[in-house]
Design a binder for these strands. Structure first.
Lengths: 135, 135
DNA sequence: CATAGGGCCTCCAGCAACTGGAAGGTCAAG
DNA sequence: CTTGACCTTCCAGTTGCTGGAGGCCCTATG
């Protein structure tokens, strides 16, 4: 199986697959002409990584998950811990974004959005720290 | 005012301030010994950028906002448009993260988290695409 | 006056996680 | 035989900094 087949089936770009080889996720065999020759196990791993990445796991998380995946004697608790850590990070990011959203939408509501140069958004961005530091 | 004062007052690390000079946000004067010599207007701009960055505006957004900020004849509508575009991106990110959160917390709930090797999290990561591509 | 400690300078490298492009080998079809 | 689609490697760029090396500069203390 060559790289474009694997790209199609895994949903990952060929570039990304080569990158994943570079960082040691897979080690496909080579044909005499130098082309990579993938087997199902590599496709399987790539699909696994792609799905984990889409769930927000970092590359290092994926490395850990792959090891756990390959280790048939691992405890499910180990995997759960990685997943829970990831879940917490997702929750933190959501909280941050919601705070940004609240502030920004408040500013936008206050802005007339017309042709006058007066703008509460810029005023707020400029003044908040100014009053704190330049008083 | 030297760089560490500005770092303290703006809340930005000195490294970041030098970086912001590199990319053209500020152009502080230099003392005869080569040290940067900041005036209030630069501190003001840095604080502005810092606050915009913390609200999720990209560097390029900040460049646009700074131009609008410096242009006293601009219409507040221009600023509002940048802010609204940014708000939409924040909303999209929140939606993505919520979807990840739902999937991941579902998987975590199903995982026993004990010493048995059986783990629905890994099963799901491994099988979803497998069934699609290797059937 | 020498020295120790900070602070400041520039430049180079690296983080994540790819992505794009150049330069070139390979292969199958017409 | 040529065309065009593959494949290869390697290098550079992306975003927004951050760390470190190597080296001035400035002040304070003995």
């Amino acid at each position: 199986m060559n790289i474009s087949d694997v790209a199609d089936k895994s949903g990952l770009p060929a570039k990304t697959i080569r990158y994943y080889e570079d960082i040691g996720f897979i080690k496909p065999k080579r044909l005499p002409n130098g082309y990579r020759d993938f087997e199902n196990v590599e496709l399987h791993k790539l699909a696994f990584i792609g799905r984990a990445r889409s769930l927000g796991f970092s590359i290092e998380d994926c490395r850990t998950l792959l090891e756990l995946y390959n280790d048939t004697s691992r405890a499910s608790a180990d995997v759960k811990q990685v997943a829970q850590h990831n879940l917490k990070e997702i929750e933190d990011k959501i909280a941050d974004l919601k705070a940004m959203h609240a502030t920004l939408s408040h500013l936008i509501d206050e802005c007339a959005g017309d042709h006058r140069p007066d703008c509460p958004i810029l005023d707020s961005l400029g003044n908040t720290v100014l009053t704190k530091s330049l008083s």
